[in-house]
Amino acid sequence: MTVAAATSVVHASGLTLRYGRTAALTDVSFTLYDGVTGLLGPNGAGKTTLLRIVATALPPDQGTLSVLGNDPRTPAGRLAVRRRLGYLPQDPGFHPGFTAFEFVDYVAILKELTDRRARHQEVSRVLDAVGLSGQRGRRIRALSGGMRQRVALAAALAGDPDLLVLDEPTVGLDPEQRLRFREVIAELGEGRSVLLSTHQTEEVMALCQRVVVLDGGTVRFEGTPADLAAHARGRVWTSGARVAGALASWRAGDGRYRNVGDPPAGAELLEPTVEDGYLMLVDTPAREETGR
């Protein structure tokens, strides 16, 4: 099935939100389908605000939003969305005295899983899905940061939601923990929609079928990772020395420099990556404005 023929899971049009005099989001429009969509952007871009709006935790000042076919601006619409939503915020608000099982069980109760036996089976299922079945009886305060993140993900998975909204789920994890999370998230993206906020372009390359770039509260890009990388086509080259005036220039493992920006005549061009495209997209306007 092509994306054009698929049914949208989330459709946002003209979302705008201000905190006092500060514009957090301005005229944000995008569409989500099944699969994993990465939300990229620098600090302060408005990613967490946007995810909170999609997760029905925050209403926009303006604009329209459809989530799973419902309008979250209405009480009935919000309830319908929340019954089919899994949300992992940056700070899950753990009670440190809870065990992993007790915390996920508590969230499952909030999700209206009222039958005790069926609920406990579901809690066991999601803890196993994130690799924590052996840690179910340990208290939250005794778990590592990576394990706590997996507990929070298990809580988001309770009830088998159709839409997962994950806000920086791999922050603070070591490389092994991050790889484990990637495996879980990739599997979760099969047959449902996952919106994943991240600073890591490598996560977008590894996991995402689509990507949205948010910068300064506005959408700068929406498309495939390959399309994002293409923004830097013809703008990445290698050299034997650092190039003054390049947007970015660093020494690679082979001892040569990888440069992003405006290449000199005759430069040896390289195939661009998602990171290169992202740098061109979010950093070029700042350079133009400052005259650098």
Rank of each mutant, 00 (worst) to 15 (best):
E289T: 13
T2F: 04
T198R: 04
Q177E: 12
V171F: 13
D91L: 14
L163T: 04
R83D: 05
A267Q: 07
L279A: 06
V151S: 02
L88P: 03
S249I: 02
L15D: 01
G63P: 02
L39D: 03
A229Q: 01
D128N: 14
W237H: 05
G240H: 13
G134Q: 15
G38L: 00
A76I: 07
L85E: 05
L163F: 11
A23Y: 09
T99V: 07
T2N: 10
L281H: 09
R78N: 09
V28C: 07
D262N: 12
R82D: 01
A118L: 11
G216Q: 00
F181C: 07
A226N: 11
A267N: 03
P72L: 08
A286S: 11
D215H: 15
R125L: 13
E112R: 12
R292E: 15
R150T: 08
R210N: 02
V81C: 01
S197E: 07
L228F: 08
L79M: 15
P225R: 03
P89Q: 07
V282P: 13
T31R: 08
A129E: 11
A186I: 12
R292Y: 13
H120E: 15
T22A: 13
D34A: 15
L157Q: 06
P75V: 06
L50P: 04
V3N: 00
A248G: 14
R73E: 15
L40S: 04
L173W: 00
E268N: 13
G189H: 02
T238Y: 10
G261S: 10
F221A: 01
L51W: 03
T56A: 08
E268I: 12
R233A: 15
V219H: 04
R21Q: 14
A244S: 15
R242I: 12
E168S: 09
V236W: 00
R148I: 02
R178Y: 06
R182F: 06
L143V: 00
L270R: 02
H95S: 10
G41T: 05
S13T: 14
V219A: 05
V123Q: 06
V130E: 01
S29H: 08
N70M: 13
D115W: 13
T224L: 06
G217P: 02
G253C: 11
A286L: 13
D61L: 10
L68G: 10
P264S: 09
N259G: 09
G291P: 02
T290R: 15
F94C: 08
L153V: 11
W237F: 11
M205K: 14
G189R: 00
P96H: 09
S13C: 14
E122M: 08
